[in-house]
Simulated assay, not measured.
Amino acid sequence: MSNPGQISPLPPVTRHITGHNAAGKAIVQSSTPGDWKSYEESQMAFNVVYTTSQFPADLNQDADIATHDKVQQSGKLGLVNPKGTVCRIVDFAPNNKCVVHRTQSLDYGIVLEGQVEMMVEEGDPVRMQRGDIAIQRATMHGWRNPSETEWARMVFVLQDCQPLTVAGVEMKEELGIATGVLNPSGNDQ
């Protein structure tokens, strides 16, 4: 592994944040390596790339950056950031344990490396290839890397959503076997 703190052998990730200089010209304000956290006995690793806490985001005087830093330092971020967004990279070990869960959110999940199976409650798993995108709409779902030897990587953008009611039942967050491991999002109160 070439990146300290990274769990998987996949290439390191660098986050580049842009902004403006005093003359109003676009600049790269910062470039920082990924900050990884291991879960499920190193079968999964999360790197929260960025969060917003309101929509639309307020970029004036770098308010969004300050708010992101505050959210990260709180240590309380769940999978979803209430009233905002989360951009997260997830690395999956070969044959990882599938964590079936539901978030109250609209998520875009994009396969960057390897193959990932998307599991839902009904029907066969859907095998996703590099470049495939899942639009996850507050459903029970899980992600599994079917490879025996290679790690897989996805990027997710999670967006808080209005409460969803289906067949008279409100679809609240359910963390499954990750309950007590992951912080609850708190956006389904």
Rank of each mutant, 00 (worst) to 15 (best):
Q54L: 02
G142T: 04
V86D: 02
I133N: 01
H68W: 12
N81R: 08
V48D: 07
D124Q: 15
V86T: 10
M171V: 07
M118A: 12
P12K: 05
N183I: 03
E117R: 08
G24S: 10
G109T: 10
Q104L: 15
V80W: 09
T139F: 06
R15E: 07
E121T: 11
E113F: 00
R137M: 06
M118L: 15
G114N: 08
G109A: 14
A22N: 13
T103Y: 08
A57H: 02
V13Y: 03
M118C: 09
Q61K: 14
L59P: 01
L10A: 01
M154T: 12
R127Y: 00
S30F: 01
E122I: 14
P12D: 09
K37Y: 10
W151M: 06
V90D: 02
T51Q: 02
K70G: 03
P82W: 05
M44W: 02
N60C: 01
A167K: 14
T179M: 11
A63Y: 04
Q115N: 12
A23D: 11
L175N: 08
V155M: 14
M140G: 03
G142W: 11
P163L: 12
G186P: 06
Q189V: 07
C87T: 15
V120D: 01
M128W: 01
M1N: 11
T14E: 14
I133D: 00
D132R: 02
K25A: 12
D58G: 04
S53E: 09
G34F: 04
G84T: 05
Q72K: 15
N187T: 05
G180T: 08
A167W: 10
G19T: 10
K25M: 13
D107F: 06
V99Q: 08
Q129L: 09
F156Y: 14
V48G: 06
N187Q: 07
V71I: 14
Q104K: 10
K25S: 12
T51G: 03
S42D: 15
M119A: 07
L175G: 04
L158C: 08
E117C: 07
Q73C: 03
V169E: 15
E150T: 10
I110M: 00
M118Q: 12
K25Y: 11
T85I: 05
R153E: 02
G168P: 06
M128P: 00
D107R: 11
N47W: 02
K70Y: 04
R153C: 03
V100D: 07
N81Q: 15
V155E: 02
I89Y: 01
E117L: 05
I135S: 01
E173M: 06
V71E: 09
R137T: 09
S2V: 07
Y50G: 04
V99K: 08
G131D: 05
V28A: 06
A134Q: 10
V80Y: 07
M140F: 15
V71H: 13
A45R: 03
